[in-house]
Structures are given as C-alpha cells and as structure tokens.
Design a protein around this nucleic acid. Structure first.
Lengths: 233, 233
DNA sequence: TCAAAAGTGTTCTACCTACACCCATGG
DNA sequence: CCATGGGTGTAGGTAGAACACTTTTGA
C-alpha cells in the first residue's frame, strides 16, 4: 500500500560541527561550499539525507567524505527547521563530531576546500551555521560536564596537563592543575604508562591511556537534589 | 532560482511523549491512531511537519490539537530515521512534553481517542514508539539532573512532599524527605506561601511557588572535573 | 644551580548523610 | 492523647579549594 500519499515532503539535510584540539585551543573544520546557493562561501560540512539511510548515517557519510575518518564521536545537537532559514525549505539536523589529536592533521579529501579555523575566530558562515556552532558548543559543555567525552579529542596516549588545558579551553576557565590531576586520577578512568612526554616540559608528564571499561560505564550524572548514590541504570 | 532540484525529499514527522504526574506516579498520554497504517492501535501522538513550520512548531501544533494546551515545556529528545522503521520512509523527530498537574485531567480533544496510562505499564505501541519513550525517559532524567525542569509537572502551588515524590518516581528511588526538603529550600528556588495542603496529612505541608527569576537562571550544571565556580554563561 | 613544570601533602571549609527529635493536627 | 506525616538540629564524614612544598630535569 502507499500510505501518506498526500503528506508534504521535505528536503532533509545534516550539517556537521567538526571540532579538533591542537593542544592549545579548539579548532573547527570548515569547507568552502561547492554548490549553489552561496557557492564558494565558508560553511559547515553538510549534505542531504538519502532515502535509504538514517540522518546519523548521513552525517557519518558526509564526515567520512570530507575527512576519510570513520567511527568518530558524533552526537546530534539540534535541529534547524525554520521555514525561512534558506532560500528553499530545508530542515537540517546538526551533529557535532570530535576528532582526536593524532588524526588531527589528517588527509582531507581533495574534493573539498577545507580548512581548520580557531573556534572563536572563524570566517562568517552562510545561513544559520553560526547558530549551529553555538548550540554545538553548548551541547559539548553540558555533555562534557556529565560524561568524560572530551577524551575523544585527545590521542590514545595523553598527559594530564594536556587534558587539563583542553578542559580549560572548552569552559574558558583557569584550572588548578594540581587539584584537577588528583580528581581525575581518583576517578579510576586513567591507566598510567611508563613513559613521559618530554616535549612540553623539563620534568616531563607521564602518559596515560583510558581505562575503557570504566570509561564506558561512566554514564553517571550528578543528580541535583538527589543523593549521589541514587544512580541506577 | 530553484536549488536542490534533484535532491531526495522525505516525509518528516514529529512524535510527542507526553508525560504527566498524578501525585503518585508518572503517566503517559497515548492515542488510538486514526490513520492507516496501524489504524486503531495505540501510539504516541504525532503528525507530519508542514512546509511552512519548524519541527518544533509542528510538535506544538500537534500537542495543542490533542490537549488544547499551549506553551507546555517541550524538548527534542531524539530523531528516529532508520529506513525500515515504518512501511514508508518517515523520519520522525521526538519531543517530550511535561503537563502540569492542574491541567492534568484537562479536556482532551474529542477528535481523538486518548488515554493516560501508567508510564511503566502501557499497551504495546506501534513502530519504534516504545524506543522513543525510552529515550524520552533518559533525556528527562539527564535534563532534570541539571535543570529544575520537574517543576513543570507540578501545579503552580505545590508542597515539598509532592515534589519529593515526583523525584522519587522519575529516578525510581527512595528519598530522605527531610534532607531533600532542606536542600531544595536552600536553593532559593521556592517561595513559601501562607497556606497549607491539608489533603494529604494531618499536619499539612506548606505550599510553595517557584521563584521564577531564580528558576530561569538556574541553568547551572555540575561540571565534573571542574571547580564549581567555573560556570559561565 | 636555577627556572619551570609536574605532582604530593595538608588544612580549611562546605556540604552531604543519617538520624534523633520536635511540631501540628485530626480522629 | 496518640498516630501520622511535616519539619528542624546536629554530628560525622567526604570531597573540593587553596596553597605550601617537593621532585625532576634541561639549559
């Protein structure tokens, strides 16, 4: 049978806020748009959702097409569907993706003109893409407050000073690295390696890697107004 | 100009997980589906997104059509777009809505056969609607841990025991009401009224109402690994 | 040997938890 | 006058914030 025959159809797109950490600050990957309208202007990487794929799948596909990377951390962070947001009616689902530092300067597809920009200083973007970045930032902050997802931005081996400066720049704050280090170590999330990073200091900071078992289980939230033991599920 | 002429179009729908609190437990509002396919089976209230409205607007419209209520607390909590989720390809955006207790037994539109069911004991639903409820539950818990949104489920005047039992049933836990009460009062969120609720106990519990100024500002999250003062924005 | 960054120890404080106990009231 | 649920007082513990201090190393 052919249901919903008279219902309106819509152009459905995805746009990706692609974030990376260069060790000092957050950057965002933008592309020069290849199609009209607004051709040759900077924008988020995006694309239309095909009929045989989910929006999430479309976002992965689009991301892979640009970066050649798969299995990135990705999360929906908003839907932009105001009727007037583009010349034609397009509803866009926004995802943010976190790219880890080892793959940071990866081979971008030659097909696109893409470039990393400082997150807080990038060119003007088309349509409502700047709003999309704002919601992505907000979602990232909220999410990172409850779940240890910022590790997705770090290489497999990382030091505590590294992740501290990542937190500093996501939240735009100044951390007491001494207390931060202890808090993090007490979480059980990290496994110490017998190796130091001598690049960035005389003494050198130990490398750690994630304890994946614990990482996956750390789906605990702080429950305001609730006792802290009350986390089930 | 006519852009995107050859791009695929999609049926875009919204589905609403409508939650209410009867003073004892959470309930969900379901409807008997009026159109094929799956006509006459229980489902979430939903509808297609029109060409001249945003998905959010569509959700409000659909919600109002069923309940005659406007300006409910509503939030996106997922997108369901796997190709095989319905007979025909439909991408559905899920919203959850919280209905406050005073409007709880409101006049449902006569157009629909709608009924409140206990959230943890409702009939089988069509398609992936049960998964939608799961993600809504999860989003509600996460959200309510960071923001005081559960007040949306209570009437304008409410007692602390009332909200305590609401928290108990959202998180499926047993609270120490004495400590809960103090914690809540110290938040500055509540304004005490000179009136007691004598319905539910001999002594009677004082009514409170929300301090809206503080309620709106309480967009603070607990930032794991971060000092608590580090909340900006 | 000095500067700089990594990391440890220690104190102070705030808050959370548990629980004893008091309060108000209707039957 | 007592059972019931609302609410306060308080003590002990835990965790965060602040910061002095030690460690490691290259220049």
């Amino acid at each position: 049978m052919d249901f919903y025959k008279n219902e309106p159809q819509t152009l459905l797109a995805v746009d990706c806020v692609i974030l990376g950490f260069n060790g000092e600050s957050l950057e965002i990957l933008l592309v020069k748009r290849g199609i009209a309208p607004e051709r040759n202007k900077w924008s988020l990487m995006g694309g239309f959702v095909y009929e045989d794929e989910s929006p999430e799948k479309a976002a992965s596909r689009v991301l892979k097409k640009l970066t050649n990377l798969e299995d990135l951390y990705m999360e929906n962070c908003g839907i932009f569907g105001e009727p007037g947001r583009e010349e034609r009616r397009v509803v866009s689902i926004v995802y943010f993706a976190l790219i880890d530092a080892t793959q940071y300067r990866h081979i971008l597809s030659e097909e696109y003109e893409a470039k990393w920009f400082p997150l807080d200083k990038h060119p003007k973007l088309i349509f409502d893409h700047e709003d999309m970045i704002s919601t992505a930032k907000h979602t990232l902050r909220t999410k990172a407050a409850l779940y240890p997802i910022l590790f997705e931005l770090l290489p497999e081996k990382f030091t505590i000073p590294q992740i501290a400066s990542l937190y500093e720049c996501v939240y735009n704050i100044d951390l007491d690295k001494r207390n931060f280090s202890r808090k993090l170590l007490s979480s059980g999330l990290l496994i110490k390696l017998n190796e130091k990073d001598k690049e960035n200091s005389r003494k050198g900071a130990f490398f750690y890697r994630l304890n994946m078992d614990i990482y996956k289980e750390k789906i605990m939230s702080f429950l305001r107004y609730l006792p802290s033991w009350s986390v089930d599920e």
